[in-house]
């Protein structure tokens, strides 16, 4: 069992880290929550059927993200994701054609990440899992414990919301 858990911890740590980062836009939070999820995996993973563990891990990660969002909102009174700690490097002042393109694509990426992190649940989690992490509908459905068709509906609705917040930028 220890070997299985170790293998799973190794495999899923990047996945959990990516998921948390795009939901909260904070590397610090992503590290903390990933560590917390791995601790829980060691603590309770032995009591869960091995084939259900990947979905369980993502569920634990998502619950931690929801808790963190709630705490941040309570503490600061502002929406989570409105200004993370990432990519704070300033852009160069004078730019040639390629540089301009690079800045534009960087700005677009920032706007996209901010809009994504500002989405409500479960739209945010579903978009990150599906579009960035390329998880299948059934994997998402298991992780979120909700029907597959509901996942599809939320995904499409969430992308439409993203489109609305990025209007004029894409």
């Amino acid at each position: 069992m220890k070997d299985t858990l170790h293998k799973l911890a190794e495999e899923s740590r990047h996945k959990v880290y990516t998921f948390v980062y795009y939901c909260l836009r904070s590397h610090e939070e992503a590290e903390d929550i990933t560590q917390e999820v791995l601790m829980k995996l060691w603590q309770y993973g032995g009591d869960i059927e091995p084939e259900r563990l990947p979905g369980w891990i993502m569920r634990v990660a998502r619950n931690a993200v929801i808790d963190s969002t709630r705490k941040q909102r309570t503490r600061a009174g502002v929406p989570c994701g409105s200004g993370g700690d990432v990519d704070a490097t300033p852009a160069p002042l004078s730019l040639d054609g390629d540089g301009e393109q690079a800045v534009r694509s960087r700005e677009l990426r920032e706007a996209l990440e901010t809009a994504l992190a500002s989405l409500a649940e479960p739209y945010r989690s579903i978009i990150v899992m599906r579009e960035i992490q390329e998880m299948s509908y059934s994997e998402i459905s298991e992780s979120l414990e909700c029907p597959l068709n509901t996942v599809k509906v939320y995904l499409h609705r969430g992308r439409r919301m993203l489109r609305t917040s990025l209007k004029g930028k894409v």
Partner: peptide, 12 residues
Amino acid sequence: VVHELRALPELR
């Protein structure tokens, strides 16, 4: 939007 989302990298 889908294209940009799918271009976001998986992090390590």
